[in-house]
Nucleic acid binder design. Sequence first.
DNA 1: ATGGTGGTTCAACCA
Length: 262
Amino acid sequence: MKIVTWNINGVKARHEAVAAYLREASPDVICMQEIKSVDEGFPTGLFEDAGYQIETHGQKGFNGVAIASKFAIEDVSRGLPGNDDDEQSRYIEATISQPGGAVRIASLYLPNGNPLGTEKFSYKLAWMARLRRHAARLLDEEMPTVLAGDYNVIPELTDAKRPSAWTGDALFQPESRAAYRGLLNLGYTDAVRTCEPGPGVYTFWDYQAGAWNKDDGIRIDHLLLSPQAADRLRSAGVDRHTRGWDKPSDHAPTWAEIEMGA
DNA sequence: ATGGTGGTTCAACCA
């Protein structure tokens, strides 16, 4: 089962790129973030025509997450538990049933958190604390689980071409990185870091200042695997070439292949 | 050090 996470930065602007990627990569499941669409306005036909079921959790103008799958999508849950007052659409979770078994998959869009010293950064840290509590509960289910998305966290120095450029940024703060390590310490595995341990593996290049041409990237899109999913991990990586397409997202599709048997 | 680009929505916000 090939599972992709991709921050598409607006589904309306990314119609052609998404269609081309589905044809080319043919993932079994694709988790998307920043769809920037309400559910009623979402172009479901883009996915249905390619053979996918699609479930969305949208919002007007900002944020918004979705899961599309070639297999049946069941038990859909919208919103990250732990704060009923949070109105931002950043989390959707569902069970994907496949002949070899079922996988619980989340598509998450973690708050950016900039600038430091504002309520945006405290919201980011509070959201990460909620995610940790929920991620711990998911482990109790003991089923293969994949938490995929734009984490807006650069985990380590090797995950940035120019680490010094990010020292004052919410994506690289010690608190942000510690909260990410907290997820790993629960027992989750960073699929891409495990399969591609070397430097230079990035998932995001800013639109500004020629970042893509200079390969001035960072790795902030991650797939975290529960032990039951990590046992089945075969390969993982980044389809970085899509960043060079016309009208690209500033993020590249990031994926993991899980062996699910017959 | 600053400004650099892009998406959505409608002058501003977010990244």
